[in-house]
């Protein structure tokens, strides 16, 4: 695959992220989301350029994909930046900038750039800010109030620290949630899901890891579901729409570099990530474990590729 193709694909992926980002801006916080996108985009492109310049200086041009140092980025940095802009709370520009720099410098270029990285760069950046500044990335705008006035706990955090409220209670009380009727987080999640569906339809992303994650999450939450009592671990719909799950399913676990190549390995990868997301949500300290689950899945990928190599056609 030539660099031009990569650039084209990455721009298409960025475009597929736009409906979700636009809806996120419209429904949650127009100023904050715009700031996030601008910060992440600018920092991503600047970091990418700087790292490429440094690499061509230390490693010599022959180590770079042909001409990359001259013509610049293949736009994958933009995708990483946009994912982080969407995954972090609107207006949290310091975490967004830190996550973007970490993602590209440490997660991608230290490994030799796109195609050589072991871990998904965006999730490296996200996990680093999540453990370094948990408070700064914990507050999301409350839907239905004046914009940039109030931030509150996400539905996942409310769920985590519920005392005796039933799941249905939290579900309908949480602003921006409930039965897909009210405009809110569910619509945003759905928009990311549709963007991802477009990528699958165009054959630009492997669907097996994504379906695997959702299947494992649905199965695990059905096993732990008891019709919504206070001890319940959450219904399948709750797990699919809460947090950044559809964003991650569409744009993170589908990262072709960091998921296995073989079909069987892709299923195993997806199922593992799905089960891990459920376990961390249900029993871990962090309200949402997508970043950790994806990184663990990435860590498993070289082993899976080794164990179930891609069948080569003669």
């Amino acid at each position: 695959m030539s660099r031009q193709d990569t650039r084209h694909i990455m721009l298409t992926v960025s475009a597929a992220l736009l409906p979700g980002l636009a809806l996120q801006a419209l429904l949650l916080d127009p100023v904050g989301v715009t700031l996030n996108v601008l910060t992440a985009g600018a920092v991503a492109i600047a970091t990418d350029r700087l790292c490429l310049a440094a690499r061509s200086r230390t490693s010599g041009r022959e180590f770079l994909p042909d001409g990359l140092a001259v013509t610049g980025s293949d736009a994958s940095a933009l995708v990483t930046g946009l994912i982080l802009a969407a995954a972090l709370p609107p207006g949290a520009i310091v975490p967004v900038a830190l996550a973007t720099v970490t993602a590209l410098a440490l997660g991608k270029h230290a490994y030799g750039g796109l195609g050589n990285n072991v871990f998904n760069p965006a999730m490296v950046g996200y996990a680093v800010v999540l453990v370094s500044m948990p408070l700064a990335v914990g507050g999301w705008p409350v839907v239905g109030t004046a914009t940039d006035a109030l931030t509150g706990a996400t539905v996942l955090t409310t769920f985590k620290y519920r005392e005796s409220a039933t799941v249905e209670g939290i579900w309908t009380e949480a602003d921006g949630f409930g039965a897909l009727a009210g405009a809110g987080y569910e619509w945003v999640a759905l928009a990311y899901g549709l963007g991802a569906a477009f990528l699958f339809f165009r054959g630009l992303a492997a669907w097996r890891p994504a379906v695997g994650v959702m299947a494992a999450l649905i199965a695990a939450s059905l096993l732990g579901y008891d019709n919504g009592s206070s001890a319940s671990l959450g219904s399948p719909i709750y797990h699919l729409f809460a947090g950044g799950l559809l964003l991650a399913v569409g744009f993170v676990v589908t990262d072709p570099v960091t998921h296995p190549g073989g079909q069987r390995a892709q299923w195993i990868f997806g199922l593992c990530v799905g089960v891990l997301i459920f376990c961390i949500r249900a029993w871990g300290n962090y309200p949402d474990g997508i970043a950790f689950a994806v990184l663990l899945g990435n860590a498993l990928t070289p082993y899976l590729d080794r164990r179930f190599p891609v069948a080569r056609h003669a």
């Binding site: 440490l106 997660g107 230290a110 490994y111 072991v118 871990f119 490296v124 996990a127 680093v128 453990v131 891990l276 376990c279 961390i280 029993w283 871990g284 300290n285 962090y286 474990g289 970043a291 950790f292 689950a293 990184l295 663990l296 990435n298 860590a299």
Partner: peptide, 21 residues
């Protein structure tokens, strides 16, 4: 360096298990 960076990211990923049990 890259071995240690990878070990660090792996350790970061394992922080997701914090709180189990």
């Amino acid at each position: 360096p890259i071995t240690l960076i990878t070990a660090g990211i792996l350790s970061l990923a394992f922080m997701g298990f914090a709180g189990f049990g």
